[in-house]
Protein backbone atom coordinates (compact mmCIF):
# COMPACT_ATOMS: atom_id res chain seq x y z
CA UNK A 1 0.00 0.00 0.00
CA UNK A 2 1.36 3.35 -1.00
CA UNK A 3 1.67 6.03 1.59
CA UNK A 4 -0.21 9.21 1.30
CA UNK A 5 2.50 11.69 1.86
CA UNK A 6 3.00 15.38 1.75
CA UNK A 7 4.73 16.54 -1.36
CA UNK A 8 8.20 17.74 -0.69
CA UNK A 9 8.59 20.88 -2.64
CA UNK A 10 11.81 21.46 -4.42
CA UNK A 11 12.71 24.40 -2.26
CA UNK A 12 15.72 25.38 -4.27
CA UNK A 13 13.55 26.01 -7.28
CA UNK A 14 11.19 28.15 -5.24
CA UNK A 15 13.85 30.22 -3.57
CA UNK A 16 15.67 31.05 -6.78
CA UNK A 17 15.31 34.65 -7.91
CA UNK A 18 12.99 35.35 -10.79
CA UNK A 19 14.57 34.15 -14.01
CA UNK A 20 14.78 35.67 -17.40
CA UNK A 21 12.29 34.16 -19.84
CA UNK A 22 14.81 32.63 -22.22
CA UNK A 23 16.60 30.54 -19.61
CA UNK A 24 15.89 26.83 -20.26
CA UNK A 25 13.42 25.36 -17.76
CA UNK A 26 14.42 21.81 -16.89
CA UNK A 27 12.25 19.53 -14.79
CA UNK A 28 13.46 16.40 -13.01
CA UNK A 29 10.77 13.83 -12.19
CA UNK A 30 12.18 11.29 -9.74
CA UNK A 31 10.30 8.30 -8.37
CA UNK A 32 10.73 9.24 -4.71
CA UNK A 33 12.96 11.12 -2.32
CA UNK A 34 12.63 9.02 0.82
CA UNK A 35 15.73 6.89 0.38
CA UNK A 36 19.33 7.96 0.45
CA UNK A 37 20.21 7.06 -3.13
CA UNK A 38 17.76 9.44 -4.81
CA UNK A 39 18.66 12.14 -2.30
CA UNK A 40 22.29 11.92 -3.38
CA UNK A 41 21.13 11.92 -7.01
CA UNK A 42 18.98 15.03 -6.49
CA UNK A 43 21.64 16.88 -4.54
CA UNK A 44 24.13 16.18 -7.34
CA UNK A 45 21.66 17.52 -9.91
CA UNK A 46 21.35 20.77 -7.98
CA UNK A 47 25.12 21.00 -7.83
CA UNK A 48 25.57 20.73 -11.59
CA UNK A 49 27.64 23.76 -12.68
CA UNK A 50 24.93 24.94 -15.08
CA UNK A 51 22.39 25.02 -12.25
CA UNK A 52 24.77 26.68 -9.79
CA UNK A 53 25.73 29.34 -12.31
CA UNK A 54 22.07 30.02 -13.02
CA UNK A 55 22.26 29.04 -16.71
CA UNK A 56 19.20 26.79 -16.38
CA UNK A 57 16.19 26.78 -14.10
CA UNK A 58 15.76 23.41 -12.36
CA UNK A 59 12.66 22.05 -10.64
CA UNK A 60 12.68 18.63 -8.95
CA UNK A 61 9.41 16.72 -8.60
CA UNK A 62 9.04 14.00 -5.95
CA UNK A 63 7.03 11.14 -7.49
CA UNK A 64 6.27 9.67 -4.06
CA UNK A 65 6.73 6.10 -5.38
CA UNK A 66 3.55 6.33 -7.41
CA UNK A 67 3.40 6.02 -11.20
CA UNK A 68 0.22 8.07 -11.33
CA UNK A 69 1.79 10.95 -9.41
CA UNK A 70 4.65 10.96 -11.89
CA UNK A 71 2.23 11.01 -14.81
CA UNK A 72 0.47 14.04 -13.32
CA UNK A 73 3.80 15.79 -12.77
CA UNK A 74 4.54 15.31 -16.47
CA UNK A 75 1.18 16.91 -17.30
CA UNK A 76 2.15 19.84 -15.10
CA UNK A 77 5.52 20.24 -16.79
CA UNK A 78 3.95 20.04 -20.25
CA UNK A 79 1.36 22.67 -19.27
CA UNK A 80 4.11 24.94 -17.93
CA UNK A 81 6.12 24.49 -21.14
CA UNK A 82 9.28 23.08 -19.64
CA UNK A 83 12.11 22.83 -22.16
CA UNK A 84 13.44 19.41 -21.16
CA UNK A 85 12.64 16.69 -18.62
CA UNK A 86 14.97 14.34 -16.76
CA UNK A 87 13.03 11.22 -15.82
CA UNK A 88 13.67 8.56 -13.17
CA UNK A 89 10.54 6.41 -13.39
CA UNK A 90 9.09 4.22 -10.63
CA UNK A 91 7.95 1.66 -13.15
CA UNK A 92 9.48 0.57 -16.43
CA UNK A 93 6.11 0.24 -18.20
CA UNK A 94 3.94 2.88 -16.51
CA UNK A 95 6.50 5.57 -17.32
CA UNK A 96 6.13 5.05 -21.06
CA UNK A 97 2.85 6.97 -21.38
CA UNK A 98 4.35 9.98 -19.63
CA UNK A 99 7.34 10.00 -21.98
CA UNK A 100 5.05 9.81 -24.99
CA UNK A 101 2.92 12.71 -23.79
CA UNK A 102 6.04 14.86 -23.40
CA UNK A 103 7.41 13.77 -26.76
CA UNK A 104 4.09 14.63 -28.39
CA UNK A 105 4.39 18.11 -26.88
CA UNK A 106 7.90 18.39 -28.33
CA UNK A 107 9.69 18.21 -24.98
CA UNK A 108 12.81 16.01 -24.98
CA UNK A 109 12.99 13.48 -22.13
CA UNK A 110 16.31 12.14 -20.84
CA UNK A 111 16.13 8.98 -18.73
CA UNK A 112 18.39 8.49 -15.74
CA UNK A 113 19.08 5.71 -13.24
CA UNK A 114 15.96 3.62 -13.96
CA UNK A 115 14.89 2.44 -17.38
CA UNK A 116 11.60 3.14 -19.07
CA UNK A 117 10.20 1.02 -21.84
CA UNK A 118 9.87 3.70 -24.51
CA UNK A 119 11.59 4.47 -27.80
CA UNK A 120 10.64 8.14 -27.43
CA UNK A 121 13.43 8.72 -24.92
CA UNK A 122 16.01 11.22 -26.15
CA UNK A 123 18.81 9.46 -24.26
CA UNK A 124 19.45 7.36 -21.15
CA UNK A 125 22.19 7.97 -18.60
CA UNK A 126 22.37 5.13 -16.11
CA UNK A 127 24.27 2.10 -14.99
CA UNK A 128 23.78 -1.42 -16.24
CA UNK A 129 22.22 -3.39 -13.39
CA UNK A 130 23.07 -6.72 -15.01
CA UNK A 131 26.71 -5.77 -14.66
CA UNK A 132 26.41 -4.86 -10.97
CA UNK A 133 24.54 -8.09 -10.26
CA UNK A 134 27.35 -9.97 -11.94
CA UNK A 135 30.06 -8.05 -10.08
CA UNK A 136 28.61 -8.56 -6.60
CA UNK A 137 27.87 -12.26 -7.14
CA UNK A 138 31.37 -12.73 -8.60
CA UNK A 139 32.85 -11.14 -5.48
CA UNK A 140 30.93 -13.51 -3.19
CA UNK A 141 31.75 -16.57 -5.32
CA UNK A 142 35.45 -15.71 -5.55
CA UNK A 143 35.57 -15.24 -1.79
CA UNK A 144 34.12 -18.71 -1.15
CA UNK A 145 36.34 -20.32 -3.78
CA UNK A 146 33.58 -21.05 -6.31
CA UNK A 147 32.05 -23.76 -4.14
CA UNK A 148 29.64 -23.91 -1.24
CA UNK A 149 26.16 -22.60 -0.60
CA UNK A 150 24.73 -19.13 -1.01
CA UNK A 151 21.45 -17.27 -0.50
CA UNK A 152 20.09 -14.43 -2.64
CA UNK A 153 18.07 -11.59 -1.09
CA UNK A 154 16.13 -10.00 -3.91
CA UNK A 155 14.51 -6.63 -4.54
CA UNK A 156 10.75 -6.32 -5.14
CA UNK A 157 9.96 -8.98 -7.74
CA UNK A 158 9.28 -7.44 -11.13
CA UNK A 159 11.11 -4.14 -10.62
CA UNK A 160 13.63 -3.53 -13.36
CA UNK A 161 16.61 -3.40 -10.97
CA UNK A 162 15.61 -6.72 -9.41
CA UNK A 163 15.18 -8.39 -12.79
CA UNK A 164 18.51 -7.12 -14.13
CA UNK A 165 20.52 -7.68 -10.96
CA UNK A 166 19.17 -11.24 -10.73
CA UNK A 167 20.19 -11.81 -14.34
CA UNK A 168 23.70 -10.69 -13.39
CA UNK A 169 23.67 -12.85 -10.24
CA UNK A 170 22.71 -15.88 -12.31
CA UNK A 171 25.36 -15.16 -14.93
CA UNK A 172 28.06 -15.32 -12.25
CA UNK A 173 26.49 -18.39 -10.62
CA UNK A 174 26.50 -20.19 -13.95
CA UNK A 175 30.29 -19.92 -13.90
CA UNK A 176 30.38 -21.81 -10.60
CA UNK A 177 28.25 -24.93 -11.15
CA UNK A 178 29.31 -26.39 -7.79
CA UNK A 179 27.67 -23.57 -5.88
CA UNK A 180 24.15 -24.25 -4.65
CA UNK A 181 21.57 -21.51 -4.13
CA UNK A 182 19.92 -22.52 -0.86
CA UNK A 183 17.30 -19.80 -0.72
CA UNK A 184 16.15 -16.97 -2.92
CA UNK A 185 13.51 -14.58 -1.64
CA UNK A 186 12.55 -10.92 -1.74
CA UNK A 187 13.04 -8.51 1.15
CA UNK A 188 11.74 -5.53 -0.85
CA UNK A 189 14.98 -3.52 -0.57
CA UNK A 190 14.28 -3.30 3.19
CA UNK A 191 16.86 -3.77 5.92
CA UNK A 192 14.32 -4.85 8.55
CA UNK A 193 12.71 -7.40 6.22
CA UNK A 194 16.08 -8.83 5.20
CA UNK A 195 17.05 -9.17 8.84
CA UNK A 196 13.98 -11.27 9.63
CA UNK A 197 14.48 -13.36 6.50
CA UNK A 198 18.12 -14.02 7.30
CA UNK A 199 17.36 -14.94 10.92
CA UNK A 200 14.94 -17.55 9.67
CA UNK A 201 17.37 -18.85 7.05
CA UNK A 202 20.18 -19.14 9.57
CA UNK A 203 17.81 -21.31 11.61
CA UNK A 204 16.70 -23.41 8.66
CA UNK A 205 20.25 -23.96 7.38
CA UNK A 206 22.57 -23.94 10.38
CA UNK A 207 26.22 -23.77 9.41
CA UNK A 208 25.40 -24.21 5.72
CA UNK A 209 25.32 -20.67 4.34
CA UNK A 210 28.69 -19.49 3.02
CA UNK A 211 27.74 -16.50 0.93
CA UNK A 212 25.01 -13.86 0.90
CA UNK A 213 24.15 -11.98 -2.26
CA UNK A 214 22.08 -8.93 -1.34
CA UNK A 215 20.67 -7.13 -4.36
CA UNK A 216 21.12 -3.84 -2.53
CA UNK A 217 23.15 -2.61 0.41
CA UNK A 218 20.21 -2.19 2.78
CA UNK A 219 19.39 -5.90 2.58
CA UNK A 220 23.03 -6.97 2.90
CA UNK A 221 23.23 -4.82 6.04
CA UNK A 222 20.07 -6.47 7.39
CA UNK A 223 21.70 -9.89 6.85
CA UNK A 224 24.79 -8.73 8.76
CA UNK A 225 22.62 -7.68 11.71
CA UNK A 226 20.91 -11.08 11.67
CA UNK A 227 24.28 -12.84 11.75
CA UNK A 228 25.40 -10.71 14.67
CA UNK A 229 22.12 -11.30 16.51
CA UNK A 230 22.56 -15.05 16.09
CA UNK A 231 25.96 -14.78 17.77
CA UNK A 232 27.79 -15.84 14.62
CA UNK A 233 30.92 -14.36 13.12
CA UNK A 234 30.28 -11.98 10.21
CA UNK A 235 33.71 -12.77 8.77
CA UNK A 236 32.65 -16.42 8.33
CA UNK A 237 30.30 -15.23 5.59
CA UNK A 238 31.02 -13.59 2.30
CA UNK A 239 28.48 -10.77 1.86
CA UNK A 240 27.92 -8.27 -0.92
CA UNK A 241 25.47 -5.53 -1.75
CA UNK A 242 24.95 -2.86 -4.39
CA UNK A 243 24.62 0.96 -4.37
CA UNK A 244 27.33 2.20 -1.99
CA UNK A 245 25.06 3.86 0.58
CA UNK A 246 26.82 5.43 3.56
CA UNK A 247 26.09 2.63 6.03
CA UNK A 248 27.46 0.12 3.53
CA UNK A 249 30.65 2.14 3.06
CA UNK A 250 31.09 2.01 6.84
CA UNK A 251 30.54 -1.76 6.78
CA UNK A 252 33.09 -2.16 4.00
CA UNK A 253 35.51 -0.14 6.09
CA UNK A 254 35.07 -2.51 9.02
CA UNK A 255 35.50 -5.52 6.74
CA UNK A 256 31.94 -6.88 7.04
CA UNK A 257 30.86 -6.76 3.40
CA UNK A 258 31.60 -5.68 -0.15
CA UNK A 259 29.63 -3.10 -2.06
CA UNK A 260 29.43 -1.93 -5.65
CA UNK A 261 29.02 1.84 -5.85
CA UNK A 262 26.40 3.15 -8.20
CA UNK A 263 27.48 6.66 -9.04
CA UNK A 264 24.31 8.70 -8.51
CA UNK A 265 26.22 11.92 -9.06
CA UNK A 266 27.47 10.87 -12.50
CA UNK A 267 24.00 9.66 -13.52
CA UNK A 268 22.37 12.92 -12.47
CA UNK A 269 24.97 15.33 -13.81
CA UNK A 270 25.42 13.34 -17.01
CA UNK A 271 21.68 13.43 -17.64
CA UNK A 272 21.67 17.18 -16.99
CA UNK A 273 24.36 17.84 -19.60
CA UNK A 274 22.52 15.70 -22.16
CA UNK A 275 19.24 17.49 -21.34
CA UNK A 276 20.77 20.95 -21.74
CA UNK A 277 22.37 19.87 -25.02
CA UNK A 278 18.95 18.82 -26.35
CA UNK A 279 17.67 22.39 -25.74
CA UNK A 280 20.81 24.43 -26.44
CA UNK A 281 22.62 22.90 -29.44
CA UNK A 282 25.95 24.64 -28.74
CA UNK A 283 26.17 23.38 -25.14
CA UNK A 284 29.45 21.86 -24.04
CA UNK A 285 29.37 19.42 -21.09
CA UNK A 286 30.13 21.20 -17.82
CA UNK A 287 30.22 18.39 -15.25
CA UNK A 288 33.59 16.92 -14.28
CA UNK A 289 32.14 13.42 -14.58
CA UNK A 290 32.94 13.32 -18.30
CA UNK A 291 36.65 13.63 -17.50
CA UNK A 292 36.41 11.16 -14.58
CA UNK A 293 34.88 8.39 -16.67
CA UNK A 294 36.96 8.10 -19.80
CA UNK A 295 35.04 4.91 -20.63
CA UNK A 296 31.94 7.03 -21.17
CA UNK A 297 32.75 9.51 -23.95
CA UNK A 298 30.46 12.54 -24.47
CA UNK A 299 30.15 12.03 -28.26
CA UNK A 300 28.41 15.37 -28.72
CA UNK A 301 25.61 14.45 -26.33
CA UNK A 302 23.96 12.48 -29.11
CA UNK A 303 24.28 8.89 -27.86
CA UNK A 304 21.09 6.98 -27.16
CA UNK A 305 22.65 5.51 -24.04
CA UNK A 306 25.40 6.46 -21.61
CA UNK A 307 26.49 3.66 -19.33
CA UNK A 308 27.98 4.99 -16.09
CA UNK A 309 30.56 2.45 -14.86
CA UNK A 310 30.22 0.75 -11.45
CA UNK A 311 32.95 1.18 -8.86
CA UNK A 312 33.73 -1.66 -6.45
CA UNK A 313 34.16 -0.20 -2.95
CA UNK A 314 37.39 -1.45 -1.43
CA UNK A 315 39.49 -0.75 1.64
CA UNK A 316 41.60 1.48 -0.63
CA UNK A 317 38.91 3.86 -1.86
CA UNK A 318 36.35 3.71 0.96
CA UNK A 319 37.81 6.62 2.94
CA UNK A 320 37.79 8.88 -0.11
CA UNK A 321 34.18 7.90 -0.88
CA UNK A 322 33.12 8.51 2.71
CA UNK A 323 34.74 11.94 2.62
CA UNK A 324 32.44 12.87 -0.31
CA UNK A 325 29.38 12.19 1.88
CA UNK A 326 30.25 14.68 4.61
Amino acid sequence: MKKTMLAILATTALTMPAMAQDKPKIGAAVYGLNAEFMQIWSAALEEHPAVKEGLVELTIFDGRYDALVQQEQFDTMIAQEFDAIIFVPIDIEAGAAAVEAAAAAGIPVVGSNTRVNSDKLKSYVGSDDVQSGYMEAKYVLDAIGCKGEVVIIEGPIGQSAQISRLEGNMKALAECPEVKVLEQQTANWSRAEAQTLMENWLTAHPGEIDGIIGQNDEMALGAIEAIKAAGLNVTDFSIAGIDGITDALLAVKSGDMASILQDARAQAQGAMDVAIKSVTPDHEPMSDIWTTYTDMPWNGGADAEYSVPWTPVTADNVDALLALRQ
Binding site: K3, E36, Q39, T246
Partner: peptide, 17 residues
Protein backbone atom coordinates in the same frame (compact mmCIF):
# COMPACT_ATOMS: atom_id res chain seq x y z
CA UNK B 1 1.22 11.85 6.80
CA UNK B 2 2.48 14.60 9.10
CA UNK B 3 4.76 12.39 11.20
CA UNK B 4 6.34 10.89 8.08
CA UNK B 5 6.94 14.38 6.70
CA UNK B 6 8.45 15.52 10.01
CA UNK B 7 10.73 12.47 9.96
CA UNK B 8 12.06 13.43 6.54
CA UNK B 9 12.41 17.08 7.52
CA UNK B 10 14.17 16.29 10.80
CA UNK B 11 16.86 14.09 9.32
CA UNK B 12 16.97 15.68 5.88
CA UNK B 13 15.66 12.34 4.65
CA UNK B 14 18.92 10.62 5.58
CA UNK B 15 19.38 7.61 7.83
CA UNK B 16 21.09 7.99 11.23
CA UNK B 17 23.80 5.32 11.50
Amino acid sequence: SAARGLTLLYGGGRPVP
